[in-house]
């Protein structure tokens, strides 16, 4: 009887200490793990299919991601009036070496993504020229400028998994950049 009592209590105690000694009792302080995946850089390149106007590149760059230090580059889009440009968009992670081109992954999941353009003030119209097979994507687009003017173009990347219908209202926004745009 005495023995049994002892066994019962011993078993209860032992089970506590056994479960208390699981692997996660770090002798050393926990060390933070690596940074998450970032999109640090947005690049839009304008080329004139007729080769008349020089190629123009507008960049946004925030190497440490959201928060922390301010973005280091936020260019103005400067285009010639009454011209046509082919625009191509690139998303990069420049915080790693070598630079990770996120555009490739977006292309792979083209059916879940949509690039949207919202123009105010500037005399320019934008037409997406690429397609995921059903809907446009917007990584490639056609910009037709009018007379000289100043304004803004907001370029955003929408993530619309399983809900993409060509509409910009849906989904959550991965990128949203409001570029000062000058047609001059």
């Amino acid at each position: 009887m005495k023995k049994f009592k002892f066994l019962v209590v011993f078993a209860m105690g032992a089970s506590v200490f056994l479960s208390a000694c699981k692997k996660d009792d770090p002798e050393t302080p926990p060390t933070p793990t690596n940074e998450e995946e970032l999109i640090t850089t947005f690049k839009i390149t304008f080329t004139d299919p007729n080769g008349v106007n020089p190629t123009y590149e507008a960049v946004f760059r925030d190497i440490d991601g959201t928060g922390g230090n301010q973005p280091t580059v936020f260019d103005t889009i400067r285009l010639k009036p009454n011209s046509t440009y082919n625009a191509s968009i690139q998303f990069l992670n420049e915080s790693v070496n070598p630079t990770d081109t996120i555009t490739n992954e977006i292309l792979e999941e083209a059916g879940d993504h949509l690039v949207c353009f919202n123009i105010s003030g500037a005399n320019v119209s934008v037409q997406r020229t690429d397609s995921d097979g059903v809907f446009e994507i917007g990584l490639l687009s056609n910009w037709i400028t009018g007379n000289a003017s100043n304004g803004n173009v907001t370029i955003s990347l929408k993530h619309q998994p399983g809900i993409k219908n060509g509409n910009c209202d849906l989904g959550d926004t991965d990128i949203e950049l409001n570029f000062v745009t000058k047609i001059e």
Binding site: I39, T40, F42, F60, D62, G65, T66, G67, Q70, P71, F74, S156, T173, D174, I175, E176, L177, N178
Partner: peptide, 9 residues
């Protein structure tokens, strides 16, 4: 507000 690649927050 802070400016980020996702817009201003």
């Amino acid at each position: 507000p802070v400016l980020t690649i996702k817009g201003a927050f």
